[in-house]
Write a protein that binds this DNA or RNA. Structure first.
Lengths: 183, 183
DNA sequence: ACACAACTATAACACTTGTTATTTTACAAG
DNA sequence: CTTGTAAAATAACAAGTGTTATAGTTGTGT
């Protein structure tokens, strides 16, 4: 009874997300997305009410992508917070634009840093419990300090002021954890 | 022999810098600056070849502003790096847009983080020597770690994930320094 | 007083943005 | 095959950008 759709919502969202990873937020414009998808701007506004709705969808996809990244990241460290930290810093290094979107652009983020980080798996809660089990007396306090350090390393990677391998980072974080707990 | 200028370079630069502090980089457009100065866009292009030259001037002014901020900041701590750190974090809290410009937007910055930080006073060199004098064995290494922590706290303030007073920050940094040196 | 040159304002150009109106296209039911 | 309808393409609008061309204004040396 009608024409068959040739541009799906996935084509638009996936393309937008790919552009987000590579070129950052400011390049996700209606015409640029359309050009990359290979269509006019019209299908975008059929699927999304306006560009803001598309941006929100890209943001949500970025959150999911980050949480999957965390889940799949190899856990080689033994100390609390170290695996989470190495994964976070590695994410900042390999996905600079996504990191910026999720953890640095205060305006955009609908979800708090803690919410994104903790995720469905309760990553933060898990690590804090791990610390408590290992005899850490004030694990929340240690987490706060560790997170300042971890976030600092992640942010420094964005401006090329931190460049350690994951192995080196792990060692650094475990040293730092020991320093904080003996403090 | 000719008309007297009614719009000076200082009026343009000072207005642009004020807009940078309040509204951020993306709002320093020719027309917006002109409107705030109370003139047309023409005087801007008399004084600056193009907008990029104005942006560069604003950036340079921001560097100077930051270094003055550091110089004038009260030094109440005794440990190495703590005064520098408190001032840096305080700057991030009170001058979010400038902090972003100088230390977070990798693209724009012509000068490295170390260059800006060290400045004409040799702030970093001074602190490292202070640490050495106080018996710290590897002061450069401690500085690197401290700076990760300090930069982390500063970046967390931008997204409202860190909100301590300067006094509390000083205590935290001195604790952290002790932790790192005993590590 | 006049003329010249520097400064400023106005207007325009070319481009990009989000969004919408209009037209064309394609597909499936009758 | 015709027809209706949804999808897509084209084109346009309004707003905003840097930049420049043109015109007007103003102050000073002659």
């Amino acid at each position: 009874m009608a024409r068959k759709e040739s541009v799906t919502i996935d084509m638009i969202l996936d393309t937008s997300f790919a552009m987000m990873r590579e070129e950052g937020f400011q390049n996700i414009t209606a015409r640029k997305v359309a050009a990359k998808v290979g269509c006019s701007t019209q299908p975008i506004f059929r699927v999304y009410k306006n560009m803001e709705e598309l941006w929100d969808a890209v943001y949500d996809k970025a959150v999911q992508y980050f949480q999957d990244y965390l889940s799949l990241f190899p856990r080689t460290g033994k100390r609390p917070f170290s695996n989470l930290g190495v994964a976070y810093i590695s994410f900042a290094k390999e996905e600079k634009k996504l990191f910026e979107l999720l953890f640095l652009s205060g305006g955009m983020g609908k979800r708090s840093m803690y919410e994104i980080l903790n995720g469905d798996n309760g990553n933060v809660v898990y690590e804090i419990n791990l610390a408590r089990v290992q005899g850490c007396e004030e694990p929340e306090d240690i987490f706060n300090k560790m997170w300042i350090f971890i976030h600092g390393a992640a942010c420094l990677t964005l401006t090329n002021n931190y460049d350690l391998s994951n192995v080196q980072t792990l060692e650094l974080l475990e040293q730092t954890y020991d320093g904080f707990t003996k403090m």
